[in-house]
Design a protein around this nucleic acid. Structure first.
Lengths: 310, 310
DNA sequence: CCTGGCATG
DNA sequence: CATGGCAGG
């Protein structure tokens, strides 16, 4: 049986199970249901310790940069106007980049990583208003650095890492590789963390807990919500990192950053939280807000934005 | 050097050479030029020998039936309302046909030929208001009958054959095969012709003479205008068949049925006449009109329509 | 510059 | 149900 990675059809009942407020139903009959939206409050620009945000970072899995540009993703970016813009799944060789983005004067410092072998696969980018001290590509392990998944920028007081974590694939064909990746990537971040604190952002391709996706029950064997992947994320937190969104909004349900294009999932808000800002412990006091911009269109992911005092 | 099969860039000067009315230019500088259109007169419904047309046949290379249906090709067909509709390059397995066309009540008798091996390649169709006496597929030669290129319908007084002739390909990689095809296909038609007269229609993938394409000079080595392909068509005429359009309009320039999607060729009417109604000698007296519907959109070819008294 | 199929998600 | 690359034209 062929199934989408985030196949919801197996678990449509699960939608109601997690919606604890709704009265218990006597029938299992499906009925049209108003989508449960996560309505985003205004951005908080001050940290708990009273500092003002001086850094705004946006991360967006664009699912094909060229299509995303055509769908006016850049208009949204100009409106949002972050200091750094991180993109994942650009799926575009550097020479094929649309002029709209390569010529963007707001971001004079642009960095691109693409897949060495497979054209139009994976790929991440980082666009900065101010020039980083240093920019590196990959995580320093040959076996992981051929798919354009990581860019690291060193700023005066922190490292910014953007990542597109490998998807475990249909039928979990790449789960074994993913486990190795998770291990090696965590080591990479921990080593950076010794030098300077780290802001990690991007598509981590995992929903951590039940609260982080609409249908946890039906997806325990699907890529993005296997015990192995969730544990990988757990170990990252154990290593001293913090999921900034969950730190601020520990109880917030229905907050997702990805909806499969299939079956009208976005319309119904049947989604997953796969995109994160993860912070070194020493940066948490400066955390002002961690936002999910779930109204922005142009991809099967929405952008996320971090306000931080660094 | 990679080139489109109908690369016009090599021969842009040729456009002016053929336009004899324009004054001789002193500079070779390209300048915007009004496209020379072939403005179609109204259909003639009577044959030279005074009979009224009793059969209307339309042929259209749709370049992908599903896309063509989405672009409302069927609306044009309903307007045109031919007795028989022949389609080429359907590029669609029978099970994937859109319901819009399979359920069309105007044409209760529908015949589909697809490529055996390559999905989404080649393929022809014939839709009839009245049921043919017999319908056959291919030309009875194993080596030619695997790509869904020919449907033959026997009507009381004639055979109707629709064809999508193999393209000789970029760099003429398939020209040798094409020569064999031309030979065998001509034999097939001649044998049919012994039984009953033949109406052949479809994409013959050849422009016969200089008058049949905009840039003859630059295309002598390109698929569709090589000496070999033109000779193949010549031999068909020598075998007793008539190019109905050229029979009626021997001097008509700028009458094309195909324009590459590239370089805005259709806008500039830089095209080729590749689609034909070819008739057995005994049908020529009944020929009423042979039309090129160059305003109909939805493909890189336009439809052609035959009015005939049979 | 378009089509349809394919791999990938 | 989208993306991009590909062969084919």
């Amino acid at each position: 049986m062929k199934r989408g990675k985030n196949a919801e059809e197996a678990t449509s009942d699960g939608e109601n199970n997690t919606a604890s407020a709704t009265p218990k139903k006597t029938k299992k009959t499906k009925e049209p249901e108003a989508p449960i939206l996560y309505d985003d409050p205004p951005d908080k620009m001050t940290s708990k310790d009273g500092r003002s945000a001086n850094m705004k970072i946006t991360s967006w899995n664009v699912d094909g940069l060229r299509a995303w540009v055509k769908k006016n993703g850049l208009d949204w970016v100009r409106e949002e106007n972050p200091d750094v813009l991180c993109l994942q799944e650009t799926k575009c060789a550097e020479k094929s980049l649309p002029a709209d983005i390569t010529s963007m004067p707001e971001y004079p410092h642009k960095y691109w990583a693409g897949s060495d072998d497979k054209e139009g696969y994976s790929g991440v980018a980082m666009l900065c208003k101010t020039e980083p001290l240093k920019v590196t590509y990959g995580i320093g392990k040959e076996e992981h650095d051929k798919e354009g998944r990581v860019i690291t920028a060193e700023f005066p007081s922190f490292y910014l890492v953007t990542v597109y974590v490998p998807n475990s694939g249909r039928g979990l064909v790449r789960l074994d590789y993913r486990k190795t990746w998770d291990e090696d990537f965590r080591m990479y971040l921990s080593e950076l963390d010794i030098e300077k604190p780290v802001v990690l952002c991007g598509d981590l391709n995992v929903a951590h807990q039940d609260i982080d996706l609409k249908n946890p029950k039906g997806n325990k064997k699907n890529a993005g919500f296997t015990p192995e992947e969730r544990e990988g994320f757990g170990k990252l937190l154990e290593a001293g990192f913090t999921d900034s969104f969950r730190e601020l909004y520990p109880e917030q349900q229905y907050a997702y950053s990805f909806w499969t294009y299939m079956m009208g999932c976005r319309q119904k808000n049947v989604g997953w939280r796969l995109d994160y800002f993860v912070l070194s412990a020493s940066l948490v006091p400066g955390l002002c807000d961690s936002k999910i911009r779930n109204k922005a269109l142009g991809s099967d992911h929405c952008p996320i934005t971090l306000h931080i005092a660094v």
